[in-house]
Structure formats: C-alpha cells, structure tokens
Design a protein around this nucleic acid. Sequence first.
DNA 1: TCGGCTCATTGATGTGCCTCAAGTTTTGCG
DNA 2: CGCAAAACTTGAGGCACATCAATGAGCCGA
Lengths: 246, 246
Amino acid sequence: MSEPNDMTGQPKRVPSGHAHHRCDQCDVRHKAMCAAVDVADNDRLAAIVSHRDVAPGQVIFEEGETADYAYNISSGEVRLYKLLPDGRRQITGFLASGDFLGLVSDDAYAYGAEAITPVELCCMRLTNLERLIADIPPVREKLLDMSHDELAAAQEQMLLLGRKTAREKLLSFLLVRHDHADPQPEDGTVHLPMSRTDIADYLGLTIETVSRTFTALRDEGLIELPDTHTVRFPDIEAVRDAAEAW
Amino acid sequence: MSEPNDMTGQPKRVPSGHAHHRCDQCDVRHKAMCAAVDVADNDRLAAIVSHRDVAPGQVIFEEGETADYAYNISSGEVRLYKLLPDGRRQITGFLASGDFLGLVSDDAYAYGAEAITPVELCCMRLTNLERLIADIPPVREKLLDMSHDELAAAQEQMLLLGRKTAREKLLSFLLVRHDHADPQPEDGTVHLPMSRTDIADYLGLTIETVSRTFTALRDEGLIELPDTHTVRFPDIEAVRDAAEAW
DNA sequence: TCGGCTCATTGATGTGCCTCAAGTTTTGCG
DNA sequence: CGCAAAACTTGAGGCACATCAATGAGCCGA
C-alpha cells in the first residue's frame, strides 16, 4: 500500500506528482490499479500499456467509434458526453486521474470523450485488458467495483437532472467536486477546470442560468468566486444545508 | 443454448412461462444466467438461491438498507428509485424478468426497489454470489457486461433527462419499451404496467404533463391508446422520426 | 499596446412545464 | 350492484428557466 515517493529524477510532465500514479512513458502504477496489482503483475501490465497525450479541447474518442482501447487517466481532466442530432449536448461525467474510460461491452463507444485540461493517458487494447481481467482476480474485482460506483453516480445524477432545481443542481455539483477532490485541498476550495458551458451541459441548464445562479449564491454569501475557475465555501455546513439532498 | 421446454408438471405460478427462465421454488435457470451457466454449475447455483414473492406496490428493499441479497427477477416488473428528503422521487429504471438488482460495491443499496406487478424473485446472498463470480468465469463476464449495459442505459437516460423536451422524453420512452420488450410482441404494441406517476418520475415530469403529452400524441395520430396501460403505433417509423434522437 | 477572439455576466422578454383545481374514469370491496 | 378511493384527464394561471441581446473581462498574436 505504501508507495515510496520515487527518487528517480522524473521528467516533470505530470503537473503535481501524486504519490500513487506515475505513468511516465509508461511505467504504469496508476492509483486505480495500484491497489489491485502486485509487483510481479506490474511488469506484465507495463508490457501492455502505451502512452498518449491529449491537448485541451481535443477529442479522445467519439461516440459510436469502434472501441479498440480502454484508457486510464494519468493526469488531467476529461469530459464524457452524448449528443442529439441537432447538437444538444449532455455531459454524462467528468473524469480525473485514476479513472478508467472506454470500458464497453458493445464494440462501439457509448459516448464521446474530450480533454478539458492537458491529459495524459495510459492506453491498453481492450483485448489485452480482458485477458488481464481473466487472469488477475484483484483487477476484475477493482473493475467490477468501479463500474458499480459509476452506476451509483449515474443514478445520483439522474436524480439531480430529473428532480432538482438549478440552485440545488449547482450546489450538489460543487459539493461533490469538493468531497471527491483528488488531493483533498485545505479549507473549502473547489477547482473547476471546465467552462461554464460544460457545467451547464452537465447539469441540464444553460450557461446563463449557471452564471446567474453562481452570482445569486455569491450574493447570498454561500460561496466566494475568487476567479472563474475557483469556488470557496466560507461555511461549508451552510452549503450542505442549502443543498438539502445530503 | 437449446433448453428443453420442461416436461415436469410445473405449478403454474409463472404467468406466461418463457422458455428460458423458470425459478419455480427455485430450480434456477434464469435467462440472464442461462447463457452463462452450464448444466453442472446449475446445480451449484440452485443450492444457493431461494425464492421470494412480492405483491404490487410492495418494497423489495430500501435505499441505504444494508445489502445482504442480490436478486434476479423471475417474473414481473420492478421500479428502482431515489428520493429527496422532501419526497421528490426519481425513478432510475424499470427492470423485468432476467434482470439483476441489488448488485453493489458498497454495503448499502444505492437505491430503493419496489414491485410494480406481482414479482417473483430469485434471491442469493451477496457473499455466495461473489464466490460464484470468482469461480465461474462466464458468470462474471455476464455480470460485467450487464453492468456496462446498465451504465450505457443510464447515460442515455441522462441525455433524456437533461436535454429532451417532454414530447421527446415520452416518445423515447415508448420506443425503448417497444424495442426492448421481452417477448417481442406482434405489431407496434407497447405494454405499460406502471402508473402515470411512475412514468412522470422516470422522465422527470409531472403526471399532468405526461397525460397531456399522451393526449397530444394521440390527437396527432402518432399513437393509439386502447387503454391506460397500452400504447399502439399505427406507423412506427413516423414515431422514430418524431423522436429524432435515434 | 492594440485589436480581435473567446468566455462570462447581466438584462429584457418569452415559453414549456409546473401548480392548483375541477372533473371523469377505473378499480376495489362490501 | 353501489359506493368510495385511486388514477387519469383537462383547464386556467404562474413561475423557473430558456432565449435573445448587449456588455464586460481575460487572453493572445501581431
């Protein structure tokens, strides 16, 4: 469990090196897999994976595309989305380092994926991954657990989309971001790398409503907005009360 | 693959016996597991499962309850839902025979489940099921595939909830019911065992809007409403066009 | 430093769906 | 059958959020 902070002078590609995952060109050891794979297996894993960098705004894969690869995020933030023929977009989730994407039963991706920030991916062919799942029990447990967690998150999001007001949606979103932030940041600070448009498409709102709701919450004193991509909670308990659903 | 239609005089508890699953007190052989389990394993499965009947409207389990059992539906229809503290409800899915429910990574159910029609369940302790997953590869593949399918369905539902109009929501719902109907019924008939309230809570609408939208679609000639729980498509292609998203 | 771009905010107005309130039909049960 | 409760439909009016439009703030290349 205790991973030594590595001493090797690593090229500083990973912005702020977290303890668990380094995939520098691609000596695996991702957070998600770290718990699952022992040292011997790590070599086997490293033989399978390759590396890919994606610039902000760039497509990782598109909905409907033939699914060859699954990815584990080494660093950066990703949005998943689905589109309607007329261009309406629903973002179905934001993923960060340690998360998997591209796992499907069908042979086509069920959603599109794009980089929000610069993203580093650890790639593996689905066929190889399936062999790994079959051979290494902890890996499949991890993946099965993760898909259950994803499903629970999806259901929570359905509740949000179907039954919450704009204000509740935004507060829930901020609280989830806060509580699930990767390296739990000091005090009540939440970082939002994505644009207002992304937030709107995630919450089933328009950018104007998102913007107005931010302003309203600021005017009420529930949040502070040091800059567009940062939110701070002066009193997080008050925020939880206001969100009601928790 | 070819299951003999069984000759044993079975008590006619299962309403309209489908070929694949019979769980009569509980000689398993469910549709979902049928493909996964061979004859030898079927005995082992039968040793684990027990049987449970649930009347319409009754709770199967509640959100937050400690998750001891997973269930496979032998017959009947089930609704899954989440609640807000003030009573607002979001139905996250309808399940029918062959579907699993109660699979969680956490030790508590992430949602509640209630019977819509009379329901027959095939129950198994989660601890036992986990052993089965570990021992019988086809079972875990089946379950992993199914959870990927569920996730895809959840994402489709997020798109519906966040970005579709009431009319599009209802049409999408009817088309999915039509296309996924268990024994594909002749012509364009869709059976809706659930109430208008259930439909509303599934689509993120009110019962009044659901009712009005049904009426509007009928007046347009897109659907017929022989009775409250039945919809027919005179011209299903026209319906697909109207739904746009497909 | 400027001009042009993208992104966010703010305002005025519109509308799709919700809320409230009757009716009507269906269901369950003595 | 007959009554009551539940479920569904229909109507009138209101509101939360969308739409349309203008302004302001940050960013970057020339």
